[in-house]
Design a protein around this nucleic acid. Sequence first.
RNA 1: GUGAGUGUAGCUCAGGGGUAGAGCGCUGGACUGUGGCUCCAGAUGUCGAGGGUUCAAAUCCCUUCACUCACCCCA
Length: 420
Amino acid sequence: MEVNAVRGFNDILAPEIERWRILEEYARQVLEEFGFSEIRVPILEKAKLFSRSIGEETDIVEKETYTFEDRGGDLVTMRPEATASIVRAYIEHKMYAAEPMAKLYSIGPMFRHERPQKGRFRQFHQINAEVFGISHPMIDAEVMAIVIHYLSLVGAADYNLQINSLGCRRCRLPYKKDLQVFLTDRLPQLCGDCRRRMERNPLRAFDCKKPGCQEVMTEAPHVADYLCSECTEHFKGVQYYLEVLDVPFTINPRMVRGLDYYTKTSFEVIAGGLGAQNAVAGGGRYDRLVEELGGPDIPGIGFAIGMERLLLTLPKRRPSVDLALFIAALGEEPQKEAFSLSYKLNRSGVRTMIDYEGRSLKAQMRRADKFGARFVLIIGEDEQRSGKSILRDMKKKKQEEVPLHTIFEEITRRLGGGSP
RNA sequence: GUGAGUGUAGCUCAGGGGUAGAGCGCUGGACUGUGGCUCCAGAUGUCGAGGGUUCAAAUCCCUUCACUCACCCCA
């Protein structure tokens, strides 16, 4: 019986790997330029961590996590996102002690048990960045600017930054109450889901795609009108500093995020070509989270970029093999010679390939061409006897005799000299 | 978890009761020791799986699995 991969868990094969590496390299480069340092946190955490941070009643924790008892009887969860783990590590290692400000980033897989669809997988990868200890709106703008800068650097186009403010505890409660009243008055017009959500998370109704609900929600009160003076000031500041950095954005008062810990600023980057799952990046401020997880009262803000989704928006590229040399050998002795020569050349950085099957010269030439070899070295019985070989330049379609023992110098000279 | 669509060669897909197909790719030949182009030849399938109807099923019926998209939720 054939065993295949678990649903929603993907292999990343050779043609794709190059694109992944580019995303990772640029992420490291950009984030380190902006003063972030890498942190690697475990994939498995105690289940409590996520129910406390993301929220007990959120869909993610309620029905999307891979949670199970390990052999020691501990309830553990495969992380559905990275922020909680990074905050946990920040507290656990008392990173705030000497200096509360910290900029951390991490790249790795996350796990959510959802039905896969375009741009959504059960194992997916995120680039995460978190900033602790700064409550000034400048950092909110900077973090968003970094995301945008990164996206344009890797070649993304057709994306749009949307921002909103969710307020803090003080302003969100009265807003939630008023929204509930508003929804109760219009109960008959709402779909079953939204009626159910009303109690715990009325904000969700904004996200509902049912036409009836959308129509109702166009008249619903906005958080923006309920923000306390501090939150209003902060939100104004964020917009001001985004303008200072020339980062275009749109305010989306209907944007709500699915994680409980967000306060004040929240943002998403929406991209075209993604299907229904159109957010490539998302993030926001979480001023209460560090304290809620047992640390001191330190604010935080962060973002996550979905790598699979980002790749979907980026153009595909034909991978080039860039083989320097193919050695075509004819006969047993020459084959042995080719075998040992290719080993030496590969060891010295000249990417070389041979044919192991003893095919005809024609077949070997075809393979050389298929693998994109820049040069082909032909060794037959005659050449071996005379100590010479034929070196053919596949691009220039020219060949000449070269002494076998100087072949390494010859190849490196030609490859190094006139760039291919 | 719910709904819809699709499963036939390595890939993209035709065929809808009567011998399993095309294009691309692959292997070889034309060119006996020289690649791409052209021409010719060849190999490869439990027709997703299991059951049923039938003289006969890739085709009709039932069940099941997988994939895809959407709902939901989000990166």
